[in-house]
């Protein structure tokens, strides 16, 4: 079982990204759960979302306290929330940040986490490929690459089918989203 915890702020799409990841896992035949944990219901408030991905049926309904991976969609949360709480040392944390990786890594190390640290500049990728800031696609690609539970090409094929279905009435955004995924797979540091 792979367990993933997402940290974001309301309105940034962390919940949607978690549900998309569960969908990707489901499509390749895994059992998967994706769910949000809401605090105050307002834009900008910290929210947490979770994924469980397993080869066997999932029955547990609690939140995730010892994740294999943590995804930080909004790096301003690193100082206000214990984002590495319970994170496994042989797991990894992925931070959405334009900063130098060394700087982010130092910030995470200062919190006492010694596992792997990755950064991805989802804003840059999103603006470049979609013209607007939608961090979902780049963050999704980053977590797929780091966790390695699915082959990258299989992932891209599945996402293309998902986007074609999801954006049936807006086909012009499919290419941009696909490019965002590919760029994120290349640019993850």
């Amino acid at each position: 079982m792979i367990e993933i915890r997402w940290h974001g702020r309301g309105g940034q799409g962390a919940k949607t990204a978690a549900l998309l990841l569960a969908e990707v896992a489901f499509k390749i035949g895994k059992n998967a759960q994706g769910f949000p944990e809401y605090g105050p219901e307002r834009m900008g408030a910290p929210i947490t979302a979770y994924d469980r991905i397993s080869d066997t049926p999932i029955r547990v309904h609690s939140n995730i306290y010892d994740p294999d991976y943590v995804v930080v969609v909004d790096e301003s949360l690193i100082d206000s929330i214990d984002v590495t709480a319970g994170l496994k040392e042989d797991g990894a944390i992925i931070v959405n940040s334009p900063r130098d990786k060394a700087e982010v890594e130092a910030q995470i190390r200062a919190k006492g986490y010694n596992g792997r640290v990755y950064t991805i500049d989802a804003r840059h990728i999103s603006i470049h490929t979609l013209g607007r800031y939608f961090p979902n696609s780049p963050m999704l690609a980053a977590v797929v690459k780091v966790s390695g539970f699915i082959d990258e090409n299989v992932f891209l094929e599945n996402m293309e089918a998902s986007y074609k279905h999801k954006f049936a009435k807006k086909p012009e955004v499919i290419a941009g989203n696909m490019e965002a995924l590919r760029m994120a797979l290349r640019e993850l540091k």
Partner: peptide, 12 residues
């Protein structure tokens, strides 16, 4: 059904 725990969680 249980609010959020099942209502807002996607499952197979």
């Amino acid at each position: 059904q249980d609010g959020f725990i099942t209502s807002h969680a996607v499952m197979d």
